[in-house]
Design a protein around this nucleic acid. Sequence first.
DNA 1: ATGCCGTGGAAACCACGA
Length: 258
Amino acid sequence: MKIATYNVNGVNGRLPVLLRWLEETKPDVACLQELKAPQENFPEQALLDAGYKAIWHGQKSWNGVAILARNMEITERCRVLPGDPDDLHSRYIEAEVNGIIIGCLYLPNGNPAPGPKFDYKLQWFERLTTHAADLLASGLPVVLTGDYNVMPTEIDVYKPERWVNDALFRPETREAFKTLAAQGWTDAIRKLHPDEIIYTFFDYFRDAYGRNAGLRIDHFLLSPQLDSRLIAAAVDRNVRGWEKSSDHAPVWIELADL
DNA sequence: ATGCCGTGGAAACCACGA
């Protein structure tokens, strides 16, 4: 079972690229972030025509998350991150697909830091950590994936010294990721590629992609039940080089069937 | 160290992203 995550940066503007990527790489499940589309403007029919059922939580202009599945039912569990009824951002959606709980998340950017946006990021991180603990306690196999907006360690950023005060790399942010992972989650990319330079984001300007000036901010966290099933994990880096690409590249894992 | 690019929505510029 191949599960992918892709911050599309506008699902309608990105539709040709998204459809090409789905056709070429055929993930069984695809988690999308930054739809940047209201609920009613999601390209449901185009994805159905491509073989994918979808659930999504849209929002006008910003945010928005979706879970797609090919030849499998998607059973929605929730479409907001529990813990704050006043949080109206569409940043989390969770479903069961083929016996696996899939949490698709778009963690807040948090810049500028310090400030209210950074406070929101850390609060959102705490809510995610609380929810993640509940998921672990359920004993079910869980994949928490998406755009975490965190470079967990120095090898996950091309020039770490330039990012120390950025919301994506500040000590508080890295600590929050570490605390979450320490519950018992496995960073799938790092389990299989512990020392490799791997990026999932390249800025649009200054030829960041061509210079490999990237960040690793899109992650897969696996619950312990899935550790022994992890076969492969990689980035579809070439997709970032396509015409009209998102600034993120897709990331995927392959899990052994039971 | 930076919004130089890109998207969406409203309005012919602005907010936001990382």
